[in-house]
Amino acid sequence: DWREIAKLAEEALKKQQPVTVNGQTFNDPNEIKKLLETAQKAI
């Protein structure tokens, strides 16, 4: 669910920690931002 992904990505950016989505881990803040943008577009 994109809403859940957006929430996870936002928290990861705030806490500056990696986030795992669908078994894929994102460590890079730039990648997390991209993930968040993608999720927000999909909602």
Results as ranks from 00 to 15, higher is better:
39 A>H: 02
25 T>R: 05
1 D>S: 15
31 E>N: 04
27 N>L: 12
22 N>P: 01
2 W>E: 02
4 E>T: 10
11 E>K: 06
42 A>R: 05
2 W>Q: 02
16 Q>T: 06
21 V>T: 03
42 A>K: 12
28 D>L: 05
3 R>Q: 15
26 F>Y: 13
37 E>A: 08
16 Q>A: 12
26 F>L: 11
24 Q>K: 14
35 L>M: 04
22 N>Q: 07
12 A>T: 00
3 R>H: 15
42 A>L: 15
39 A>Y: 03
9 A>E: 00
37 E>K: 04
36 L>R: 02
8 L>G: 03
7 K>L: 08
6 A>S: 04
31 E>T: 06
34 K>S: 12
7 K>V: 11
15 K>R: 11
15 K>I: 07
16 Q>L: 06
4 E>Y: 11
37 E>M: 09
13 L>T: 02
32 I>Q: 02
31 E>C: 04
18 P>T: 06
42 A>G: 07
1 D>G: 11
24 Q>Y: 12
16 Q>K: 13
22 N>S: 06
43 I>E: 07
10 E>C: 11
17 Q>G: 09
23 G>I: 01
24 Q>A: 03
11 E>Q: 10
11 E>G: 04
17 Q>L: 10
2 W>N: 04
8 L>C: 04
11 E>M: 09
35 L>P: 01
35 L>R: 00
18 P>D: 05
16 Q>D: 12
12 A>E: 01
24 Q>D: 05
19 V>D: 02
18 P>W: 05
35 L>Y: 02
30 N>L: 14
29 P>G: 05
15 K>A: 07
28 D>F: 13
43 I>Y: 07
5 I>Q: 02
37 E>R: 06
31 E>Q: 08
19 V>G: 00
5 I>V: 08
28 D>S: 07
23 G>W: 03
15 K>F: 12
38 T>R: 13
22 N>H: 10
28 D>H: 11
5 I>K: 00
10 E>M: 12
8 L>A: 11
35 L>A: 02
43 I>A: 06
33 K>H: 09
13 L>K: 01
26 F>A: 01
16 Q>N: 15
4 E>P: 01
39 A>I: 08
7 K>H: 10
5 I>L: 07
36 L>Q: 03
15 K>Q: 07
38 T>N: 09
8 L>H: 05
39 A>L: 06
21 V>W: 10
12 A>L: 03
5 I>Y: 03
32 I>K: 01
29 P>L: 13
13 L>I: 11
39 A>C: 03
41 K>T: 13
18 P>M: 06
9 A>F: 08
14 K>C: 08
34 K>I: 12
38 T>E: 15
21 V>P: 02
18 P>G: 13
13 L>D: 01
43 I>R: 00
24 Q>T: 11
30 N>Q: 13
8 L>Q: 08
20 T>M: 08
11 E>R: 05
11 E>P: 00
25 T>W: 10
6 A>D: 01
30 N>P: 04
9 A>L: 15
17 Q>F: 12
7 K>T: 08
43 I>N: 06
5 I>N: 00
